[in-house]
Design a protein around this nucleic acid. Sequence first.
RNA 1: GCGCCUGUAGCUCAGUCGGAUAGAGCACUCGCCUUCUAAGCGAGUUGUCGCAGGUUCGAUUCCUGCCAGGCGCACCA
Length: 565
Amino acid sequence: MEVTKNGSLTQVSSHSELLATQIQGAIARAIERGDLVGQVPDSIPLERPKNRDHGDYASSIALQLAKPAGKNPREVAQLLKADLESLPEVTKVDIAGPGFINITLNRASQADLVRTVILAGSKFGTGEKLKGVTINLEFISANPTGPLHLGHTRWAAVGDALGRVLTAAGAKVTREFYINDRGNQMDLFGQSVEAAALGNPIPEDGYQGEYIKDLAAEVVSANAGILNLPTQERFIAFREAAYMAQLADQKRVLETFQTKFDVWFSERSLHDSGAVDHGLEKLRSQGHVFEVDGATWLRTTDFTDDKDRVLVKANGDLTYFASDTAYYINKRERGFDICIYMLGADHHGYVNRLGAIAACAGDDPKYNIEVLIGQLVKIMEGGEEVKLSKRAGTIITLEELVEKVGVDAARYTLIRYPVETPMVMDVDILKRNTNENPVYYVQYAHARIAAVLRNADELKAAHGLENFDPEQLSHDRENELLGALAEFPRVVSGAAELREPHRIARYLEELAGLYHGFYADCRVLPMGDEPVTSLHSARLNLCAATKQVLKNGLDLLGVSAPERM
RNA sequence: GCGCCUGUAGCUCAGUCGGAUAGAGCACUCGCCUUCUAAGCGAGUUGUCGCAGGUUCGAUUCCUGCCAGGCGCACCA
């Protein structure tokens, strides 16, 4: 993207950026002239007004500047007007209401965006906002003692999408799954599987699910002679074999769910590699470790925590918290600037604790660590809430959900809402292939365009960029569609910065809606024996650009973009 | 008791630094396939933005208190 001396972009990829820099420049010049008092703001509010009478872009900047400048907002707007009008991309600047600046763009210059999108292809929407930032994104991190269930599923979808979004914004992202393969729960798990294999009752606090029996049978058939081992060895053998089988199952299920991890990090390896000792040393050297009642503590109350935490119990055992601290320190030493943890609402008590870990390690808890808390998902089926209970065996697994509704619908629905809202998933609706299911609305727009482009090829209607004349796109529907396409990069970088992938989904729904509206009012292909005009070509290019953006957005969500439906 | 999240249309939910008449889908009513995918488009109806104060030119948005729902407060994992 080049910038000419008057601030106009020769290769327009974002009018909002152009307008923002121009407004900043105009403010600076007004200050220089002495017409304004104050500072040039870092960011300029620019929105696409809902009401089309308010132009293509609107800014409330004058209302914000008015008070410090001691001027009427409309006067302030007046000071900036001429500079905006001088842009070749701008057709009209109106000052409206209390002092809003409404900007109408030159249509051909807006339409030129089509060229940018098509040339950028799958890169359109990517940016450099997070360039140079190395992020560790940890999500799901389930115990390897059972199948992944609905509670993990939200994070599987959202975490994976967030990884894609952060990457698109220029960050270097490592997706990591922490395997809690150490401690009591693993032993209970081993005992449970062993008991099932021997036909003994499952221990009181053990794992009761039906899958334990299946796992037991699997372990026995894959490990001949396991039943004849001495008691202690037999237990270990069961525990390890069941662990491996369960982990493999989790990996398999996640793969079908289009969720990929770069690192599967074992808690045991943390201990075996000496990372825990190393972590303790590091914390000691920072001066936040103390001994009381025979236990070793971390003084997390020096920071955000409400009580201190035990690292080493009086009996010499390491706590789970010790692993957490070591793991965090390990991540930082592997070179990650930001460690993002995605946790369920039932773990929100950990937020302060984790922040305190970072602070105790000498890091900045406001930058180096981020904890995202997601509310739990309720599930409805047959008009009733399905109560999830491990004991009662009424857990819904990720795999079952996918069998019921498919990967695309499951992922899309889970990603569509901000994670802090408790969501209700109605399986019956998701099973329907109707537009009650927004994923189909978006996918349908993509498939529809694919069909139009196929038909164009059949008609030999040329639609390469060499035939593209932006002047042709002057219909209101085209204008709205173009405006939305232009927003995509901003939506992606916003979603990345705010860690909110649901913004991508909401945007795609809007874009799909605008396409459908365009399609209804603007005939793309020639009718009958009509010749192919430059209007047809221009619209075909607009279709191709829209298809590209829909595809790029769906890719960010890990949802397929079908050519046919 | 303390802390976190949520409370927006009949239902499920959007609503980036406060902004111009509060949005979408579903549901309901009515139109639109004699040529590009009707899984679509268009029109209509639907609101004390939980309640009460405060901050200001302006609050669904920020602050305080209250009410309701969910979740959490271990030398458990």
